[in-house]
Amino acid sequence: MSLSAKAQPEQLVLALPHRQAQEAEDFLVSQSNAAAVELVDGWPDWGRAAALVTGPRGAGKSHLANVWRLRSHAHLVAAADLDDGSVGKLEERGALVVEDIDRGIASEQVLFHLLNFAREKAGSILLTSRAAPGDIEIGLPDLRSRLRAIPPVHIAPPDDALLRSVLVKLFSDRQLAVEPHVIAYIALHVDRAMDAVLGVVAACDRLSLARQGKITRAVAAAALESDAPDRDDERADADGDPEH
């Protein structure tokens, strides 16, 4: 299924507690991520061996990387796990996802070799990061130069239209009908990150079941309040958790 910023909306990391949703059809598109979607749509005609997607936690980098992985049949490895075997993975399939280069690169020499190999053998590497290469501490000068030469494609936090669409999709996946004014209220008050959105939707579901009623603005307000401590705990632990 082709992703397109002009197509039926499709984006963000819709990983529900009761099922994973990491396919192209679960990726809703808006202005905040259209450039990154166009990057995936443009493969294999990138005109370069490597591409870099940047964006804050929860913006959808991992989901987009998984869409590209499925399309390109790439292996996936975290930058913190890079070793000599990663080169064999690129050699095997000609495509590789390297996630979270801002969160530690196990072997800078291996990543430099991967980038060289992809360029020389017409391979493809998709890198993800929360920070631009210039803001990442990299000791190997050649790697630092090579990464800074890759034009980053940024995913911004979800805009209003995307946030409302994601909320509608998440509630629909739970077979919950929520009125537009309640969706608008949640979108106005929830943190613009997928972990926060997922948490509030789950809290709304729990509260509506406990109260044996529909999801009203009062239920949404209670869900937003009850989910806040959990989100604070998640943020405190964020540096040690993988992005989903």
Results as ranks from 00 to 15, higher is better:
Met1Ser: 08
Ser2Arg: 14
Ser4Glu: 10
Ala5Ile: 09
Ala7Lys: 08
Gln8His: 11
Leu12His: 10
His18Ala: 13
Arg19Asn: 11
Gln20Gly: 13
Ala21Lys: 11
Glu23Asn: 09
Ala24Ile: 00
Val29Lys: 06
Gln31Asp: 13
Gln31Arg: 01
Ser32Gly: 14
Ala35Asn: 07
Asp41Pro: 01
Pro44Ser: 13
Asp45Ile: 01
Trp46Thr: 01
Trp46Asn: 03
Gly47Met: 03
Leu52Ile: 13
Val53Ala: 08
Pro56Phe: 12
Gly60Ile: 01
Asn66Met: 04
Val67Thr: 00
Val77Glu: 05
Ala78Lys: 12
Ala78Glu: 09
Ala80Thr: 00
Asp83Gln: 14
Asp84Trp: 02
Gly85Pro: 15
Gly85Leu: 11
Val87Thr: 08
Lys89Gln: 15
Arg93Tyr: 11
Ala95Asn: 06
Leu96Ala: 11
Leu96Phe: 04
Val98Thr: 03
Glu99Ala: 07
Asp100Leu: 02
Asp100Phe: 11
Ile101Glu: 01
Gly104Val: 04
Gly104Cys: 08
Glu108His: 12
Glu108Gln: 15
Gln109Met: 07
Val110Gly: 12
Phe112Arg: 06
Leu115Cys: 13
Arg119Met: 03
Glu120Asn: 07
Lys121Ser: 15
Ser124Asp: 08
Ile125Glu: 02
Leu126Trp: 00
Arg130Leu: 03
Ala131Arg: 13
Ala132Trp: 05
Pro133Met: 09
Asp135Ser: 12
Ile136Phe: 09
Ile136Gln: 00
Ile136Lys: 05
Leu140Thr: 14
Leu143Ser: 07
Arg144Trp: 07
Arg146Met: 02
Pro151Leu: 08
Ala156Gln: 09
Ala156Glu: 12
Pro158Ile: 11
Ser165Gln: 14
Leu167Ser: 03
Val168Lys: 05
Val168Trp: 05
Phe171Met: 02
Asp173Val: 01
Arg174Met: 06
Gln175Cys: 14
Glu179Ser: 12
Pro180Thr: 02
His181Gln: 05
Ile186Asn: 08
Ile186Leu: 04
Ala187Leu: 14
Leu188Tyr: 07
Asp191Lys: 15
Leu198Lys: 14
Leu198Ala: 14
Leu198Phe: 07
Leu198Ser: 14
Gly199Thr: 10
Val200Tyr: 10
Cys204His: 09
Cys204Thr: 02
Arg206Glu: 06
Arg206Ile: 11
Leu209Asn: 08
Ala210Lys: 12
Ala210Val: 11
Arg211Ala: 04
Arg211Leu: 01
Gly213Ser: 10
Lys214Gln: 13
Lys214Pro: 05
Ala221Val: 02
Ala223Ile: 10
Asp227Ile: 07
Pro229Met: 11
Pro229Ala: 12
Asp232Cys: 08
Asp233Gln: 13
Glu234Thr: 04
Glu234Trp: 05
Ala236Asp: 03
Asp237Val: 00
Ala238Val: 01
His244Gly: 13
